[in-house]
Amino acid sequence: MAYPHGELLRSPSVWQPVSAEEAWRLKREIGTGASFVAGGTLLRTQWEAGLAPYPAHMIDLTGVAELSGCGPVDEEDGGWRIGAITTLAQCRSHAGLFAAYPLIMEAARTIAAPAVRNLATIGGNALSRTGDMATALLALDSELLWQNDAGTVLEPLSDWLDRERAGLSGAPGLLIAILLPAACRMPITPNARRRCAFHKVGRREAFIPPVVNVALNVELDGDGAVADIRISAGGGTMIPARLAAAEALVRGRLPDAALLEELHAVVMGEYAPMPDPLVGEDYRRMTAANLAAAALWQASGAGGRGPGEGEKPCC
């Protein structure tokens, strides 16, 4: 029997460590011929496209205990820990995670398709940098827990993305988990004034990488003014970034029509997409501005869709 891609001839060894420390040590010992593999869905597209070499050694992460699990860090802290190999399907359907951090579910439902999400992991998507998860996690002030030679190291996702943007590429270790702070968690009370929204525009309606994506996480004060806000945006080959000028503009102000117009103008100037031969820069700036203004309008309640209302459960 002939194998179309010579799979039999170039079949790699598969290593199955049970701890993060062991997995990291394997990678160090085997070297560049080794690749960490969890779901392997994005890697498969890279192997087939010749963007990444087909590895001689695969280090299977699915048996590494520390990389799984999704839940509150502890009762007092209020923050959550999502293991790096938590599948996107689990992110899409986890009721507790949805109640605490609905942005994760909103992003997960726009990534790939259900069957791919049964294999693909949140860690893999976040580390791809240009998927949708990094944008959502940025708006939640997430931190990354790495395993490397120093042991375990915690750093803000934004710091790692800044280094990537500066061209200092490469993950500083094996991603163990993503930590979400209590400050960004949805309040348990039904009259919650923290709202979120995730919007994405792609070249098709579904199962497509983002041309532009925007995540917004806002807390309104008793008068409906913006007390606290995080807005992030990405798309194309751009590494997602917080929109600091846009955040500064709306903080402390009522999200009325005049402010939405100002926000639109600021995002048009601040959003910085990478060159794309198929999609013009002006179009993407306009799209990001439209999405950000729509997200704030919707999250502020003006759009009539708070949590539990309308078609989308969160936004």
Binding site: V14, Q16, G39, G40, T41, R44, D60, T62, A89, P114, A115, V116, N118, L119
Partner: peptide
Amino acid sequence: GEPVNSCLAMAYQ
């Protein structure tokens, strides 16, 4: 019981 693309899933998985 869950849908999976069999072109993506490898034997060891």
